[in-house]
Design a protein around this nucleic acid. Structure first.
Length: 979
RNA sequence: GCUGGCGUAGCCAAGUCUGGCCAAAGGCGACAGACUCAAGAUCUGUUCUCGCAGGAGUUCCCAGGUUCAAAUCCUGGCGCCAGCACCA
């Protein structure tokens, strides 16, 4: 049952539909605005958090429409990838949450099994998204709506990939990816997708360093610090463990059984016989790169499940190895210590104080850290662990290699070179493993598998990077800091896998149909396709006509086009594309900073010429739960955030839109606050009521002639118009909403309190006001604007400043009164009686001269009070006020120091006139007492406390008194402010 | 660790780029008043401390610095959040 607010909003949405407002029309010669938001994945039901960005997007589109531009604002659903599959799986499992969601959306039970199909699930979810967008008042072009699983879209994607390939931007090379032996390729991330456990696991890449035995077999020792191979004194193995042979390209390697399985997955080869570690103890291996022979020794702390079960011992740099070497009594003083070679320098001046403390003293870094932390045995695991981490970190950050041939290199540089050398020339391998066990949803343990011929998008390609950077240099990014960040992101970008096998949705890869294009890669150039989609939707193009030749012609202007498409139509589509392109704005949440937006720029840069590359990106922050976290299903289920339907029913789309706009600045997370939302919604309704009143009644013929107050109001409004336009232009939705929903009501309040009641002035102000807020609250703006009989406000022109008469001096005059009221308020605070009269003293003319004189000096005046005084008293006029001038200087120079002086803006006579005209009003504000306005120098005025001396230009002195005869003075008021 | 962002009153959140009009907008909450049988809603006032005269004192994470003047600029520190690759 729709609430009253909803019914009214639905009415206006129907009107917009009738008027075809959302449909884009290319009008040659007229300015255009083409914008999208990053389309959502088909992952589940939308919640309020999503609506913040959509609201912003619609606000921008509506502002541009009112600014006189042709607007194209399409939207689609990113159905590719896993989310829809996961959703469909949940339907198949009859997940109660999902079933509830379906029921709430009116899905009959009989329909539910159909949604076990991911594609249909995506289509269904897309419909629910579209409904909510419409319900929020978004004017999205219905003809351009698409899913990325639609066959026409996929033809576009295939074209895109063919062209990328043609330009050499697709490359093939090995890749290592998470893989479930039962379910196939999986992705490891902590959100609900493929993984039952270990979603936060990271892939750690070890270097397996080969150490040949004299019998032709080779031990593989896994390490994260291959550059320390020069400091190896021995190898460690767990004495009771059993290693295994692994045969690869005719060679026999020895590693743990676990590692053999990993090598089989990641490198290939075959499994050999088991080898008890005990048979290796005491035998010698050759150190690669460094040369020399070292023994294999037993260590109880080696974990055979980690790495290869064989560990390099580098006592100089690994605290555990140092301690272990000490524990081996018989060898102490022998080869281990002799070989404990220090490989790098740690310049003391680069270390932090805590690092200096850790690494002070003599000997190798590992020995120093052991000493600093007081570690005596391998059993002291925690402190040993701490020592290890801190030494590694310090060395990684500050270490300078001293071992030939790497002298002078930093540790990261040396590591890269040593790794390269080991892999290329010494038969080393890389070994990847998860930082923690990863379990697939099916229960199987996830492994890392080598994909030998993975396709990559070559974002690491320097030429492409250059183009992308060039594109970026011409773009506007908001917030502006993001431009700087983006530049770094583009640099950091490297080749990225772009296809995958397994069960997920997407476009088959045109170069090898057994692969499916990865979801991020299929959503980079798509704004271009929205243009074409409208023709498909209208039935003017068939699927078969969407050939590479067609897209070449439409998007690139190349070739004759697709012969089966009528020439005129094809030319029209090309023209249409050139009209709308480039994209003016792509808007998305901050989660898109590092993935979607960079590849969006990259792909445009790859395929489109500079003039067709995107113009701007706007990223907005999130609506978060009360815990400051991104809103999740749990928040909705737990009642922390209301479901969208409920929120719409209670507050209306406009109410929520005001809340989103007002709740926080665009570039800051906002915590969901239901009270504030309710308030925003109430504010929206108050504004509507006010507007209706202002616009409804035509001014009566006997209306009072507009006066100074009316000029003031309209001048204020003109200022609002300018600031509002600027706010929209810089996407400061908060400022725009604040003007429309806070400041204008305040100004109108004041106008009325001051006695303004000109219907024609109010009508004039209202006609501007309603258009200022129309982008934010389109529905209620329509309702109010309907009173003017001028059609739809959505199509009305955004106000211009010069629509209103404006006089800056009217602001000065009113400001004088406002200041007076402020002073009165603070006087009343300390006043315990009921005042019966107020006398206002306008400052003496010499004070105006004095302040003018001060202001005309260099600001701030360099002269101290004494010097100023001396100079002043040379002037005969000031000299004649010899007694008052010093006191006055004390009043206006805070702390006796010169500050900034501003020119008095009104003359004493003007101030007197303004205050006298307003004295009824001021008296009324004080509860109906007598107010008298006099000049400071009027000697007759009663002023027992000498208040008049305080009078300043623009700030009259006040004497508030209670008449002792009236009997009301010094009475403590009932009890209002006495607490 | 790297990259980026943030730290403002009981809470949320403006202000910081472009120093002065800032004891610091707006909202929530709280307190008081009006209305009401009452509650709610609405409206009004108050909401750092002191002060029976428009003032003074102490505040914008902490410590320094620049300046006539700092929430705002600079240096250092502390704390929090996000992203870090195939996940949209």
């Amino acid at each position: 049952m729709p609430s009253e607010i909803e019914q009214r909003e639905l009415l206006w949405q129907a009107r917009w539909k009738e008027a075809g407002l959302a449909r884009a029309h290319a009008v040659p010669g007229r300015p255009k605005h083409f914008q999208i938001f990053a389309y959502p994945g088909a992952s589940g039901f939308l919640h309020l958090g999503h609506m913040r960005g959509y609201t912003y997007a619609d606000l921008v589109a509506r502002f541009h429409r009112m600014a006189g531009e042709q607007v194209f604002f399409p939207a689609g659903i990113h159905a590719s990838g896993l989310p829809a599959v996961v959703f469909a799986n949940r339907v198949a499992r009859r997940d109660p949450d999902v079933l509830d969601g379906l029921r709430e959306r009116g899905v009959p039970d009989a329909e539910v099994p159909h949604l076990e199909d991911p594609e249909r699930a995506a289509r269904f979810l897309g419909q629910t998204y579209w409904k909510i967008w419409e319900r929020f008042g978004l004017l999205l072009d219905p003809e351009a709506y698409l899913l990325t699983t639609d066959p026409d879209y996929q033809r576009f994607i295939r074209w895109q990939f063919l062209r990328l390939q043609e330009r050499g931007l697709l490359v093939q090379k090995p890749h290592y990816a998470p893989f479930c032996p039962r379910s196939g390729p999986v992705s490891v991330d902590s959100s609900e997708t493929d993984i039952a456990r270990g979603g936060d696991a990271e892939i750690i890449t070890y270097v397996a360093v080969p150490f040949p035995l004299e019998d032709g077999r080779t031990l593989l020792a896994a390490t994260l610090r291959p550059e320390t191979v020069y400091g190896v004194t021995n190898l460690w193995v767990a004495p009771d463990s059993t290693l295994k042979e692994w045969h690869h390209e005719g060679r026999r390697y020895l590693t743990s059984a676990t590692a053999v399985r990993k090598f089989l997955d990641q490198v290939g080869g075959t499994e050999g016989p088991p080898v008890p570690a005990s048979t290796l103890l005491g035998r010698e291996v050759t150190i690669p790169l460094a040369g020399g022979r070292v023994p294999i020794l037993a260590s109880p702390v080696v974990d055979p499940e980690l790495g290869t079960g064989v560990v390099m011992s580098v006592p100089a740099h690994a605290p555990a190895d140092w301690v272990a070497a000490q524990d081996l009594g018989p060898i102490e003083g022998g080869p281990l210590q002799a070989g404990a070679r220090v490989l790098l320098d740690l310049p003391a001046d680069r270390l932090s104080p805590s690092e200096r403390k850790l690494l002070g003293g003599d000997g190798p870094p590992a020995a120093r850290s052991i000493r600093a932390l007081g570690v005596h045995s391998l059993d002291d695991r925690d402190r040993l662990q701490e020592a290890t981490e801190r030494v590694y970190r310090a060395e990684f950050a500050h270490g300078i290699m001293t071992v030939p041939p790497w002298e002078g290199l930093t540790v990261p540089q040396a590591r890269e070179k040593v790794t390269d050398l080991l892999l290329r020339e010494h038969g080393g391998f890389q070994l990847r493993e998860f930082s923690e066990p990863v379990i697939c949803r099916c229960g199987e343990t996830v492994i890392i598998r080598r994909v030998p011929h993975q396709w990559f998008l070559a974002y690491g390609n320097p030429g492409w990077k250059g183009e992308a950077r060039e594109a970026l240099s011409r773009m506007r990014l908001d917030p502006p800091e993001y431009a700087q960040e983006m530049s770094g992101i583009l640099d950091w970008y490297d080749d990225r896998p772009c296809v995958r096998q397994g069960r997920w949705l997407g476009t088959p890869f045109p170069l090898d149909e057994s692969w499916i294009i990865e979801p991020i890669a299929d959503s980079t150039l798509y704004p271009a396709y929205y243009v074409v989609r409208r023709y498909v939707q209208r039935g003017l193009l068939t699927l078969e006509q969407l050939t590479p030749a067609f897209f070449d012609f439409v998007f690139l202007g190349l070739g004759p086009g697709e012969p089966t498409v009528p020439q005129a139509l094809q030319a029209e589509i090309r023209r249409d594309f050139l009209y709308w392109y480039p994209l003016d704005l792509n808007l998305g949440g901050k989660e898109h900073k590092r993935v979607h937006f960079p590849v969006f720029i990259f792909n445009h840069a790859a395929l489109f010429p500079p003039e067709l590359r995107p113009r701007s990106i706007l990223i907005h922050w999130w609506l978060t739960s009360t815990k400051g976290e991104k809103i999740s299903k749990k928040d909705v289920k737990g009642g922390a955030v209301p479901p969208v339907d409920q929120a719409l029913q209670d507050w209306g789309a406009d109410g929520l839109r005001v809340y989103f706009a007002l709740g926080a600045t665009t570039f800051q997370d906002a915590e969901w606050d239901p009270e504030a939302a309710a308030h925003a919604a109430a504010r929206a309704q108050t504004v509507l009521k006010d507007l209706l009143g202002m616009l409804a009644t035509p001014p009566p013929p006997s209306a009072p002639a507009p006066g100074e107050l009316d000029t003031w109001l309209l001048t204020r409004m003109a200022g609002m118009v300018r600031r509002s336009r600027e706010a929209y232009e810089r996407y400061d939705f908060r400022a725009a909403a604040e003007i429309g929903f806070v400041e204008i009501p305040q100004v109108l309040d004041r106008y009325r309190i001051r006695g303004g009641r000109s219907a024609s002035t109010l009508r004039q102000a209202g006609a501007v006001w309603v258009r200022l807020i129309a982008p934010i609250t389109p529905h209620l703006a329509e309702e109010a604007y309907a009173q003017t009989g001028q059609g739809l406000v959505a199509e009305a022109p955004f106000p211009r400043e010069d629509e209103l008469p404006s006089d800056p001096r009217s602001l000065l005059k009113e400001a004088l009164l406002e200041g007076l009221e402020e002073d009165l308020t603070s006087l009343r605070k300390g006043w315990k009686g009921t005042p019966s009269g107020l006398r206002v003293f306008v400052a003496a003319p010499w004070k105006y001269r004095l302040e003018t004189w001060l202001a005309s000096r260099p600001n701030p005046s360099p002269a101290p009070r004494g010097a100023l005084l001396k100079e002043l008293l040379q002037d005969p006029e000031f000299a004649s006020h010899r007694a008052e001038v010093p006191r006055y200087l004390d009043l206006i120079l805070p702390g006796g120091r010169p500050g900034i002086q501003t020119l008095p803006e009104l003359s004493p006579a003007e101030e007197l006139t303004i205050l006298r005209q307003a004295h009824d009003y001021v008296g009324h504000r004080l509860g109906g007492l007598a107010v008298e306005v006099v000049l400071e120098e009027e000697g007759a005025a009663r002023d027992p406390q000498g208040r008049r001396a305080r009078a300043r230009p623009g700030r009259p002195a006040l004497y508030l008194w209670s008449d002792p005869e009236s009997g009301s003075g010094k009475r403590v008021p009932s009890d209002s402010s006495s607490r």
